[in-house]
Write a protein that binds this DNA or RNA. Structure first.
Length: 240
DNA sequence: CCAGACGTTGTT
DNA sequence: GTCTGG
DNA sequence: CCAGACGTTGTT
DNA sequence: GTCTGG
């Protein structure tokens, strides 16, 4: 799954430039982005161009009664999005890209959780495949939310967790937000695990566990603390 | 036809 | 929004 | 995703 | 144990 990620300022700017979107308001690097917070996303505008928009992470279906209580939809399994009531509409009509520098997955070690940071091996920014929705309150206020699509983990991430977010690359990026595409047969093949050879991962500062830790210290290497006899974390993944 | 239900994922 | 049940 | 909160009633 | 908040 993917319940936390990283987006550095310069990476967002590079991506916006790539899509021909001029950088909006100032964005500061965020090293511990969590569900329920506002995240930058890219989608096709009503006019057919690209736009960057703030979305709340945690999709709320348009028909939901309460946007807070049940909104735990920060991920959507690729296998089910074409049919699940909560996602099928967004899958056809409201696809988006979510810029990122890297993401976290947790390794359970006994009673503690160790966060690992995964990114492209070349440290280039990338985009997650996302869905968004619009919810209107009884008072008429509009709330736009999003969810990140997950798929099977590749062999690198798979050492830690069996799922990972879908990372789009190449022609898949444009195809995903092309509004002319609505057929699952065309879209679902884009939702594959990112190539393991192009990814790397390493254990990082356990302070990541708390959403209050938001700075670059999140990416500090995890202290090496393998107790004798217990299996400690491997130093890194993504190497031969 | 209308009323009412339906949210998802993750983990052990 | 869309499907199911009555 | 993880961390942290969450008591409940009856009675004065 | 389970729900809420970030």
């Amino acid at each position: 799954m993917c319940g936390r990620y990283v987006l550095k300022r310069k990476d967002l700017e590079a991506l916006l430039q790539h899509f021909g979107i001029r950088s909006l308001e100032e964005f500061h690097s965020r090293y511990n982005i969590a569900p329920t917070t506002i995240v930058p996303a890219i989608r096709t505008s009503a006019e057919g161009g690209r736009e960057a928009v703030p979305l709340r992470w945690g999709l709320v279906p348009s028909w939901a009664k309460d946007p807070a209580g049940g909104a735990r939809l920060c991920n959507a399994r690729a296998e089910g999005i074409a049919a699940k009531p909560a996602f099928r509409h967004a899958f056809r009509k409201k696809r988006c890209l979510v810029p990122a520098s890297g993401f976290y997955e947790w390794q359970t070690l006994g009673r503690t959780k160790l966060p690992w940071y995964f990114s492209r091996r070349d440290e280039q920014p990338f985009v997650f495949a996302g869905l968004w929705e619009s919810w209107r309150s009884p008072a008429g206020t509009e709330l736009e939310t999003c969810s990140l699509i997950t798929t099977d983990a590749n062999p690198v991430v798979g050492q830690i967790h069996d799922r990972m977010p879908v990372i789009l690359a190449g022609s898949g990026v444009e195809e995903w937000i092309n509004p002319e595409h609505e057929e699952p047969e065309k879209l679902l093949p884009l939702l594959r695990p990112f190539p393991a050879e192009e990814m790397s991962g390493r254990p990082v500062n356990p302070q990541v566990n708390s959403v209050a830790t938001e700075g670059p210290e999140c990416l500090e290497p995890a202290p090496v603390l393998p107790a004798p006899g217990s299996e400690g974390p491997q130093l890194s993944l993504g190497f031969e």
